[in-house]
């Protein structure tokens, strides 16, 4: 889990309207913090600090508690991510079928470490515990598409395919 993004300048004008409409829907529902954060992340791509402040005020939950929840779950991100999210599976079946080499190849090709975003903001490389497509191991998921039966020779083609 990354550090809180402190790069957002204080005076930057931030569009809170999407967050407002999300909260309008969930404000009065009990236990809605996680769905609210999920919806915000879907809209903004991550959980911006200003939006967290806003949510805190609206739901009457301390920022501390929200960050506690956001950093507990692997799904939430406090930093801006790439246009495409690559989730390299590191589940058991993928592990015994060479998932490590797939991640190394991706890391080398994209010139990023796991968890980081490429300079052109096109890709974020992440590892995920299991994608549940074990019989096609090793697999990766790019956004919502799963690519299976990969090798270090073919995984690069997936990236090239998306780029073009």
């Amino acid at each position: 889990m990354g550090e809180i993004n402190t790069n957002v300048a204080e005076d930057e004008t931030f569009d809170l309207s999407k967050a407002e409409s999300i909260l309008e829907k969930y404000k009065h529902i009990r236990g809605s913090l996680i769905p609210v954060l999920q919806a915000i992340q879907f809209e903004y791509g991550y959980l911006p600090e200003k939006v967290i402040d806003f949510v805190s005020g609206e739901l009457n939950i301390s920022v501390n508690e929200i960050i506690g929840v956001a950093t507990f779950y692997a799904q939430f991100h406090l930093q801006q991510r790439g246009k495409h999210i690559i989730k390299a599976c590191s589940g058991t079946a993928c592990h015994v079928k060479g998932a490590k080499q797939i991640v190394e190849k991706l890391s080398e090709k994209l010139e990023v470490h796991v968890g980081d975003t490429t300079k052109d903001k096109l890709f974020t490389l992440e590892e995920v515990a299991c994608l549940g497509a074990c019989s096609l191991a090793p697999v990766i998921m790019v956004d919502e598409d799963v690519y299976g039966q990969l090798s270090h020779n073919t995984v690069g083609n997936v990236i090239d395919g998306i780029k073009s």
Partner: peptide, 11 residues
């Protein structure tokens, strides 16, 4: 919440 790596029955 099928979290076991290596399991995909529920999916």
């Amino acid at each position: 919440d099928e979290g076991d790596p290596g399991a995909f029955m529920d999916r």
